[in-house]
Design a protein around this nucleic acid. Sequence first.
DNA 1: AAAAACTACTTGACTTTGCATAGTAGATAG
DNA 2: CTATCTACTATGCAAAGTCAAGTAGTTTTT
Lengths: 106, 106
Amino acid sequence: MDDTQLLKGVLEGCVLSVISRGETYGYEILSVLIENGFDTLIEGTLYPVLTRLQKKGLIACRIGKSPLGPSRKYFSITPDGEGYLAAFAENYAKITQAAMNILNDE
Amino acid sequence: MDDTQLLKGVLEGCVLSVISRGETYGYEILSVLIENGFDTLIEGTLYPVLTRLQKKGLIACRIGKSPLGPSRKYFSITPDGEGYLAAFAENYAKITQAAMNILNDE
DNA sequence: AAAAACTACTTGACTTTGCATAGTAGATAG
DNA sequence: CTATCTACTATGCAAAGTCAAGTAGTTTTT
């Protein structure tokens, strides 16, 4: 079965949520998401999400050295991002509840 | 906030689930989904879903008279559709759990 | 009987988002 | 010095939902 469609939009909210816990960078976000069940996620998907979030002003970015590898882009959530995340979580809960309603009501 | 992306894929499974309860038609499916929380759903979204499900062989279709209006296209689920629906429900539960993991873990 | 409202389905251009694939490049270990 | 791990970039594609409009049959209203 193909998950692709089910991930649309969800990913953006989840990435934002990971960043909201504290400053982090792409590669780390990737591994956190994979560990938490998004096991098919790849770089080609994640990095464009980060670019989008930044363009929307939901996260901020600075470049910093890594203790063990090339420089990283460190992301942190903005006040706008906090607001968006709260709205997203609420909205997502509403939609999944609607879906569960339908799927489990026979 | 824009739900659009969050509906991708979910809708297809939910439509299939509604049809699995018994033969029904587009307009009725629309109202069932709207009543159950998909309140922004519109015809231009639903009917293409039905066409897709039919093309994939997950639902069957016959045209019949309506007791109060123009003729309807009545849909029913196929054996393939039943299998797909079960797989979908399982997969959807997995993804939402991953998302909830991320969203509610601070 | 004409107009409005409701039922029911269709279509096409548009947007967003995720995927696949490939590439660039710094740092470290063997 | 080459392989591996870390880390980010870029491009072209496909799938699905939205918008907007349209077509039509049927029933209700005036």
